[in-house]
Write a protein that binds this DNA or RNA. Structure first.
Lengths: 358, 358
DNA sequence: CGTCTTTGGGATAACGATTTCCAAGAGACC
DNA sequence: GGTCTCTTGGAAATCGTTATCCCAAAGACG
């Protein structure tokens, strides 16, 4: 089923049919109708491969994320896909498995497929840099959530500030001695959260008794860290976790060792994944405006010039929202604990257009 | 950067370079080396769009799932992607949002993009049928996890049997009065689970006091169902849920109303998602061999003939494994509850090759 | 030594769309 | 009425690759 056949049945030339269907040039109404009718009758749908070869646009955008099994990413992916769909674009999704080599391979493969742009959440804020830059020299690229360098457009959330709010909240609850179960700082978000945590602890708690454990963004690491924590001679007032998965792992081990949250120690997660609200105790976490991040990233992808050429690079930073739940409210009596109605921070986008390299 | 330029710098014809790079025909070693060197030097990577146009194969497989935010799917997707990667194929992932119209639209779009095959988890076991059949008439199609009709190849898990094991386990724990928080039976898995549940209740508990609530696969529905359950005058012995998300929602509301699990009522999930093990109490659930399902589906995709033409249709059914945890062990004392060490069913593949329409 | 087969390189024709480019016809305007 | 512009349909070039076809050279074999 080619455009040629449609043209034949319509008694027209392929050129005219093409124009009639795409509206790229005016076609006499009568011929247009004939073309449309023939296409309809034959159930013709254009071969996008052929079209892509000629127009040099595939109508496809690639996206590379570190790990779809981390419930944080599906939410972003859905937002991105929804937005892309609205403009008739397909999403080519890849999971880099948090591996820089894999990530590079995937990006190259996407480029071979001549995608129209790439959304990438670089798994390593340093080593992913060359890959991101290379990609950006060929097609529009937007970094989403995580970044590797500031030479390429970025849309994400102010992690530093969000983490500071977490610590401030804990300090207000009377916590003075903190432990941080971090993810290794290969991911930019992890690095920013760590930094935010450290600075906030300095400010709000005078940096006392600041223990830090570095692993990854997994539940299993949370378990391991909790075991190490328990092996020390005393518990901190609060355990801050790099994300919800880690917090769940920590919670699991604490509980199995008879440590009560929030009675004996307060606990926080990050990302406000769906499960954070239904664990026991429900987890205080940080909600990010993912819908907006996704939308903005797609939007930005269309305005990024084809080949990054030293012009100003756009970066959008959204503000996250602290969601307080029972895991940081030792005072709440069971009756009061549902529904959770703690104080909340405000959210709102915060745009910054900066020169490259800033 | 085209093959023509490579050919020029190598002092060869494009045809020879093409052959040298793809190995589709023997090329004199010396010329081969020259072609490779030139390609390497120029950093040439073939334009897959042009190649696809000529060879009628894009090296891309489409996958349509109902909802990536359901943590069950990312696991399957990862398995599929891993397997595809091994054969150098890209995955074009789509989320149908559990909507039949959307699903149809996506499948059409995939066909336009001339993907080499489609993996689909049809959202409606009845209405998705036409779409699946249409797709199968154009490219190889394998249904994965869910199915719509048996005219198209399928890889999945024996839901019916798995659910029977759940009920049997509960009956052994002394439960006689059951409630089932179902997902509406639009998804084939939901329908099979319901059927398995009903039959097992008949057999093991004489069908006494069998309440059923039908909603969807979401946590929110679990909450709603639990509220309805609590509104009735008495609680059943056990609440069986269509999947883990639903169970989490149920658990959340039960807890907030002071109902103890497993003290007052036993509770089960399905899918054994990562969180099932870390809720409190940990959730008895059903683990499916998703890695194998994914692998088998990709494998099958390669052997399915291009156009479904009435030959025998392959269907592979794997067996799931019951994972018993504290939510169904009222007798376990806290000290014993960790790690969970309940009896486990065995898993194993179970292949069936059946004629179409069976 | 002649013929017959095999091997391998290169020219060229696809693949299926879009997009020049060209030409014919219709108005416009002096 | 003549020229000039504008419109619009169709022929043909084009995108970058691979497959087909042809031909020359080399080797096989009687």
């Amino acid at each position: 089923m080619t455009i040629r056949q449609v043209a034949t049945t319509a008694g027209l030339s392929p050129a005219t049919v093409s124009r009639a269907l795409s509206g790229s040039r005016r076609v006499a109404p009568e011929l247009q109708a004939r073309a449309l009718a023939a296409a309809e009758q034959l159930g013709y749908r254009a071969n996008r491969v052929a079209r892509a070869l000629r127009t040099r646009s595939t109508g496809t955008v690639g996206m590379v994320v570190p790990n779809i099994a981390n419930p944080f990413f599906p939410v972003i992916i859905q937002a991105v896909e929804k937005q892309l769909r609205a403009q008739g674009t397909q999403l080519l999704l890849c999971d880099s498995g948090d591996d820089v080599r894999q990530e590079a391979e995937l990006v190259h493969s996407l480029l071979e497929h001549r995608i129209d742009g790439i959304l990438v959440s670089p798994c390593d804020r340093v080593s992913s840099r060359t890959t991101v830059r290379l990609a950006a020299s060929q097609v529009p690229v937007v970094q989403i959530d995580r970044r590797a360098g500031s030479e390429v457009a970025f849309v994400g959330v102010d992690q530093d500030r969000a983490m500071a709010e977490v610590v401030e909240h804990l300090a207000r609850q009377g916590c003075r001695r903190f432990a941080y179960v971090a993810s290794s700082s290969r991911a930019s978000t992890a690095a920013e959260r760590s930094r935010g945590y450290r600075r906030a602890v300095q400010r709000f708690a005078n940096g006392s008794h600041d223990r830090l454990y570095a692993g990854d963004f997994s539940m299993e690491w949370g378990r391991e860290a909790a075991r190490r924590l328990l092996a020390e001679r005393d518990l901190p007032d609060a355990v801050v976790c790099a994300n919800d998965l880690v917090a769940l792992g920590v919670l699991d081990v604490l509980r199995s060792h008879g440590v009560d949250v929030p009675g004996d120690v307060l606990l926080t997660g990050f990302d406000d994944t769906e499960v954070a609200a239904v664990t026991w105790p429900p987890l205080t976490s940080v909600r990010q405006p993912l819908e907006e991040v996704g939308r903005r990233a797609v939007e930005l992808l269309r305005t990024v010039p084809d080949r990054a050429d030293g012009g100003p690079v756009r970066a959008t930073l959204f503000r996250a929202e602290l969601v307080v739940r029972r895991s940081t409210q030792p005072g709440a009596r069971p009756g009061e604990s549902w529904p959770p109605a703690g104080p909340r921070g405000q959210a709102g986008p915060q745009e910054a257009s900066r020169a490259a390299g800033s």
